[in-house]
Write a protein that binds this DNA or RNA. Sequence first.
DNA 1: AAACAAAAAGAAATCGATTTCAAGAAAGTG
DNA 2: CACTTTCTTGAAATCGATTTCTTTTTGTTT
Lengths: 335, 335
Amino acid sequence: MVTISDVAKLAGVSVSTVSRVINDNPHVTPQKRQAILNAMNELGYAPLQAARQLRGSGTETIAVVVPEIVNPFFSYLVDTIERVIDEKGFKTLIIQTFGQKRNELNALNLLKVNQVDGVILCAIENDFETIKAYLTYGKIAVCNEYVNDETVSMIYGNQFEGIRQGTQYLLSKGKRRIAYCTGRRGIMMQPRGVNFDSDRYLGFIKALQVQQLSFDPELLFTNAHTIDDGKRILQQIRTLSAPPDAVVAGSDEVATGIVSEAVKSGLQIPDQLAVLGVDDQPLARYLQYPLTTIRQPIKAMGHKVAEVLLNEIKHPETKTSREMLDLKIVPRKSA
Amino acid sequence: MVTISDVAKLAGVSVSTVSRVINDNPHVTPQKRQAILNAMNELGYAPLQAARQLRGSGTETIAVVVPEIVNPFFSYLVDTIERVIDEKGFKTLIIQTFGQKRNELNALNLLKVNQVDGVILCAIENDFETIKAYLTYGKIAVCNEYVNDETVSMIYGNQFEGIRQGTQYLLSKGKRRIAYCTGRRGIMMQPRGVNFDSDRYLGFIKALQVQQLSFDPELLFTNAHTIDDGKRILQQIRTLSAPPDAVVAGSDEVATGIVSEAVKSGLQIPDQLAVLGVDDQPLARYLQYPLTTIRQPIKAMGHKVAEVLLNEIKHPETKTSREMLDLKIVPRKSA
DNA sequence: AAACAAAAAGAAATCGATTTCAAGAAAGTG
DNA sequence: CACTTTCTTGAAATCGATTTCTTTTTGTTT
């Protein structure tokens, strides 16, 4: 292994001077700087991360935290984010929480032990007060989710408006009894703008209200994540005495499960049951019933959050950003 | 930050003794060990990775290297691998190469600078001799791909047999003029068993040979990765004076693109053109033409490679493994 | 040209762990 | 009981960088 002192020796200077050129300290004469640069090149020297970390200098690394990478929404989000981080010469650490608080805390802990300069959370598992405590150790930015707090930057989609428009679209097709699926265990009502899930739900309710419709709680389905959850939900729907004529599925996976099981049961899509997805996954348009779905601004979101965080790292005094991006309904065959 | 000396102070011993219990050194009396454990608990102490790395002790971290995580094949592979690594109390570093040699070398370099104990390569970008050079610094295992070399463990699917059976399936449906798509720039012929791509191609040719058919090089399409590549390929196919009656698409994405464009052109699937995918992605069965495809043993492969590598790390004298797993054809509608 | 400020460069301390070495305590042997 | 041998333990060196403190060199001003 070639170390800083090897470089110093070859360049005929002290290690301190080498360290100065590594860290862009101005107090080095151009000749020595060049000599050192040459030596570094000749030896193929790269500073050892561990040693730098130990002294508490920057790591030029960002941790990107997602629930699970097999979800295309998150894999595309990570992809976009990583490309921006790369571009700026930083490194990326992809971390999966699998929905567990402990894993999210481990990721945040990387700030404390100086393994990363910043963390991008693409979901929130812990209480936000707990998360905020880590701001002492480094920068944090939140992407996709949001809470009512100005201390960290948040870039997210306008869930309220997206779901409202999607629901309105269903209503415009003459649907009147619309079911609603959510990934969470239940709906926790919040004022508008403070929380991802409740915003979606508020958007849904809002669209109904405009048509003076009220929501039948029998049509609320929770814990909906996978294709199989979708299938399960359709089975539950079939047992209802007054079944819905449309469903806001909450994700393309769930929508796919619902549609596939509905077809199997002989229901006409979208006449007897219209199904609205969310995300617009790459394959959504190639499905048996190409999904009508609400596209999330993944690229813009990833781009923006990475840029904002990197900027905060470079200029620590920058004040935090909060940006809301539009979702877009993509009409196809399922609704 | 709580350090090892804080623990030492509280427990009333020296740092050396604390270090001993951290590293399971037997030469510590049970009483002191307990006192130290208590102190560690009370202070919520965790050793700083950077400091350990600096001294060259184990990091209990594995780097998993994939071309790109947006490809579901790789995201599911990573998922399986990470779960095993987790289970054994190790940490996972997910690294994307985006197909670039430089990024793969950076990942391998983590071994040199002691940031990881092992690397799992789920694809190979560099010359294998270059990769082998890193074995001095830690363990390497290869998953999915393979080369003719016994110095590192390799767990992979039987590509030859998988594609052979798939092609045979097409032949059994009466197809006689079969096109072949590959992700690489071209086909480099190798003896059987030494290389992923050439094995696939050999399996394809083998199936043709059994029927005394030869392959028309006009039907070879290279650089096929995405849905759009599939669409492009179908356009090229349409310009052929003697078009194929079936395609081995090389991946579900490419198959999806071919099918979608074929339908648009009014071709009958599978009668006029049968399309065979590879991978069996989650949505493959829900497509407009549910894909007939060759399923890869992702779970078994991920499981096995992680176990093998972790075992080699724990018992460095273990000799390397080489295991071949079966692919399985999944007949649906596209062929 | 003398006096002083600013810039450049090196020596040594430091970060938080592990590891070597040496010393002291306990246990085993004849 | 004297003498090894084996266990425990702690002090100090070490890993490879950064950073503080000093010293030396250079530049500016009168």
